[in-house]
């Protein structure tokens, strides 16, 4: 019998799943050096450091590939579900805006907060897949591919570095660590994820070799 923790998360935001992808934009930035935030640049810890950056991304990658993030960044148009990342039952599809179609819109089942019990829909006010024109696929991506994708302004939801950094603070991202009964959280704690995320980006947003 499932418990019913109806915890309201003050921070909940919609596109937590998308976030991770957004976060990635920085790399593109690194590559063309466009929007490097000078303030951040000044601090010693933010000096480009490919070794530290890649190491940090190793942690980030584990989170992005965990079911809590990857399930809504599927390779196809149907989200994944569960700790085993099976295809979502009843095959809901992305739709243009990522919010489903017709009688199968995400918000028809996914409420603003988690539904109580095991096997019930987790909730967020902005529950969605990335949209049709910016799919930000995580599933099947190597660490290098994903890092490059996140750094690419054209593939990361058009986020610059500052937006990426901010994105890790997005309540939606944070919701990945509270997805309701019966769902394993990502492999590292949220705080640790944010730290790794920042470090990866601030130290140059380098992509691993593989």
């Amino acid at each position: 019998m499932g418990k019913a923790p109806v915890r309201k998360l003050a921070f909940q935001h919609p596109k937590f799943l998308i976030i991770a992808a957004l976060a990635g934009l920085v790399i593109g930035l690194t590559a063309n050096g466009l929007n490097y935030d000078k303030q951040i640049r000044k601090t010693a810890t933010n000096r480009p450091d490919s070794i530290a950056s890649v190491a940090a991304f190793g942690k980030v990658y584990k989170v992005l590939k965990s079911p809590r993030c990857m399930n809504c960044h599927p390779a196809g148009n149907i989200p994944l579900q569960g700790d085993d990342s099976h295809l979502h039952t009843m095959s809901p599809i992305r739709g243009k805006d990522g919010k489903g179609v017709y009688a199968m819109k995400c918000a028809n089942c996914h409420q603003a907060t988690n539904s109580p019990g095991v096997g019930t829909p987790p909730g967020n006010p902005n529950w969605a897949l990335p949209p049709e024109d910016m799919k930000m696929v995580f599933q099947g991506k190597s660490a290098r591919e994903l890092a490059l994708q996140i750094m690419d302004y054209k593939r990361n939801g058009h986020k610059n570095k500052a937006q990426l950094i901010a994105h890790a603070r997005d309540t939606l991202v944070k919701a990945g660590w509270n997805m309701g009964d019966g769902r394993k959280p990502p492999p590292i704690a949220y705080k640790e994820f944010v730290a790794a995320w920042d470090e990866w980006i601030n130290k140059g947003g380098y992509a691993p070799g593989k």
């Binding site: 390779a75 196809g76 085993d84 990342s85 099976h86 599933q139």
Partner: peptide, 9 residues
């Protein structure tokens, strides 16, 4: 394709 379900489990 894409099914990661573990039957034994």
């Amino acid at each position: 394709p894409g099914n990661t379900l573990n039957i034994k489990q």
